[in-house]
Design a protein around this nucleic acid. Structure first.
Length: 272
DNA sequence: TTGTGTTTTATTGCCTCC
DNA sequence: GGAGGCAATAAAACACAA
């Protein structure tokens, strides 16, 4: 640390100070330390015409800065920049800061917060999409189950007609859903298992992968690929876009079910 | 006007990568 | 070890109903 200068460490928001035009603040152990000489003569990050007089007054008195919002123009430009690339390399940060008359640190913070907002929205969308896919699969499964029951009953009555004196008890046993389930061919058992897995959420809750790494940058799904190998195909038309249209179309969860739904049913079959 | 909920800006501490 | 990323959080600014 340079000697002969007073440094401020803004430990709370009541003691906010301005950074210089460059990155005059620096971080020590995760904290930003700011040169007072620089901070005391800085203009506000921005000010509206209405605020101008107020700004002048309290700047002269070097009152602690208040938090203020970026102008719509600044936000617009930042959004556009975020749209092209949601990570901010140092050069672009400096350029943007100059262009917007902001501190590089502010630009960096804005991108950071913007990424966080994007991620939140993305998770919401992914959840909605998973839920609707699950609901759709579930109703599909239910209707197939009903259809299966209906066909079984049909078969039963046909058998009875063919062999009126044959032991109705034997066939009756088979119409027992639990017994039938146990005797179900592997193809149907598999479908039951699939649904079970999806509904427990123990495997599918992987919002974060095993080592807790963020997957924002890679565009990978948080869904464990090994668990759902058939469900990981990229699906066109997933709207990963945030309301403002600044998204890059990547999803935290690949649309697990959309792909599955497009495939042939997993060996649906009727047995007697 | 005021209470309350939401959004935005910024800080802090920890973690990973080089 | 420094730089930069993220999660968690604080607090100001804003929106809005009562």
């Amino acid at each position: 640390m340079e000697s002969g200068r007073i440094f401020f460490e803004p430990s709370c928001h009541n003691n906010m100070f301005f950074l210089g035009n460059g990155d005059s603040g620096f971080r020590v152990g995760g904290r930003t330390v700011i040169n007072l000489e620089e901070s005391s003569k800085r203009r506000p990050f921005f000010s509206t015409a209405a605020e101008e007089l107020y700004d002048e007054e309290y700047f002269d008195e070097q009152l602690p800065e208040k938090k203020r919002r970026l102008t719509p123009e600044q936000v617009h430009l930042l959004e556009k920049s975020f749209e092209t690339e949601n990570k901010l390399e140092p050069e672009r940060k400096t350029q943007l800061a100059k262009k917007l008359n902001l501190q590089p640190r502010q630009v960096a913070v804005w991108f950071q917060n913007r990424r966080a907002r994007w991620k939140t929205k993305q998770l919401e969308r992914d959840y909605d999409q998973l839920k609707s896919s699950y609901d759709s699969l579930l109703s599909n499964y239910d209707s197939i189950l009903k259809e299966n029951d209906k066909l079984k009953n049909e078969l039963l009555s046909l058998n009875e007609k063919l062999q009126p004196k044959e032991t109705a008890g034997e066939l009756g046993q088979k119409s027992d859903p639990i017994a039938a389930e146990a005797e179900a061919p592997p193809c149907l058992q598999l479908t039951v298992k699939v649904e079970d897995r999806l509904s427990t959420g123990s495997d599918g809750s992987a919002v974060v992968d095993d080592d807790g790494r963020q997957l924002l940058d890679s565009g990978d799904s948080y869904f464990p690929n090994s668990d759902y190998p058939d469900c990981m195909a990229a699906v066109d038309g997933i709207n990963s876009e945030e309301d403002d249209g600044s998204d890059d179309g990547r999803s935290y969860f690949t649309d697990v079910f959309a792909a599955a739904e497009q495939q042939e049913p997993i060996g649906w079959c009727i047995w007697s």
